[in-house]
């Protein structure tokens, strides 16, 4: 018998547990040239902010050992252009659309999230709280419990229809209390992890390689870190609260995705691997199905947290 791949994330029924990761899949058309987006469990967009953003100076990206370091600077078309030009195309693709939302003030998050919640075709809102909070001297919202609670509960009050997902930053001493704070503030699902803070230096020029000096590390290099964070949050918060985790960080092969599910994730996102192969996400779906069949699992959901002890 064919295993059932579908899983539930908040109010969204996903055809399978595999999504794109924000910022690595554009707004859809770019990847649709390589596969049918309906093969995905969900499509997650690039971050959307209130106003369009040009992004950082270049170099914005550099390859490091088994990883990519990026400081794109949240370059995006802005809310109005997203609603007018990007969403209409995306909502006709027969795939749940999750919009990643970023901001620098609580008011900006609320305004963008409310507008998206009211727009037909937005199934989920993923809050990217790894952004500097201008009112708090640039400390990222997601790095302090009060900052996180403030932004998540404010958005919670403004979002009625769409599933509210909070994407956590790994750049904290202990991610568990922040995951708990997000759930207590109304998150219906948690995505972890965003990129790890890092830098690269050119020794010949004695200069930082990225124009922004530091950036976010992604790719296979961060997978063990991401797995452990998923494991910890599952054991200490998500399992009891029955809140699904979306695992992301360095997934390249179907086996990587299986590892995330075993650690406690309900779904996964494919980021940097889409740069290596634009059709990496559907390949992971097929590999996952094969793993389930080979290991006599009837449902993908049965893998969540199924780590033998």
């Amino acid at each position: 018998m064919k295993p059932a791949l579908d899983v539930q994330v908040g109010k969204i029924r996903l055809r399978n547990p595999v999504m794109t990761a924000s910022g690595t899949a554009g707004y859809g058309p770019e990847l649709a040239a390589f596969f049918d987006l309906a093969e995905l469990g969900a499509f997650v967009t690039k971050a959307v902010t209130r106003q369009p953003r040009a992004g950082n100076e270049t170099p914005r990206l550099v390859e490091t050992r088994a990883g990519l370091l990026n400081a794109i600077g949240l370059a995006n078309v802005g809310l109005d252009a997203f609603l007018a030009e990007k969403l209409p195309w995306l909502r006709d693709r027969n795939v749940p659309v999750i919009v990643n939302v970023a901001g620098t003030t609580v008011a900006e998050y609320v305004e963008v999230a409310a507008a998206l919640d009211a727009a037909p075709g937005v199934a989920g809102i993923e809050l990217n709280i790894s952004c500097p909070n201008v009112k708090q001297g640039g400390l990222e919202f997601g790095r302090s419990e009060p900052g996180l609670r403030e932004v998540v509960s404010a958005v919670r009050a403004a979002v009625r229809r769409a599933t509210l997902i909070v994407k956590l930053t790994p750049n904290v001493t202990d991610i568990v209390p922040l995951a708990r704070a997000a759930v207590e503030s109304g998150a219906e699902a948690l995505t972890l992890i965003n990129t790890l803070s890092g830098m690269a230096i050119n020794a010949t020029k004695r200069r930082a390689i990225l124009a922004n000096v530091s950036g976010g590390l992604s790719g296979p290099a961060i997978k063990p870190v991401a797995l452990k964070m998923v494991y910890d949050v599952y054991r200490n918060v998500a399992r009891q609260a029955r809140i699904p985790i979306i695992g992301v960080g360095g997934i390249q092969y179907a086996s990587d995705a299986v590892e995330f599910l075993l650690a406690g994730a309900t779904a996964v996102q494919i980021g940097t691997a889409s740069f290596v192969d634009p059709a990496a996400a559907p390949a992971v779906v097929r590999g996952l199905e094969q793993y389930l069949a080979a290991n006599s699992f009837a449902r993908a959901a049965d893998l969540t947290g199924a780590l033998e002890s």
Binding site: G23, T24, A25, G26, E30, L31, A33, F34, K46, G55, T58, P59, R60, L61, V62, E63, L68, N70, I72, A75, S274, F275, P278
Partner: peptide, 16 residues
């Protein structure tokens, strides 16, 4: 030229 993460228009690294 510029560093290219994807060359399909999704990573936004190759800004000029």
């Amino acid at each position: 030229e510029n560093f290219m993460g994807c060359a399909i228009g999704v990573c936004l690294s190759c800004a000029t």
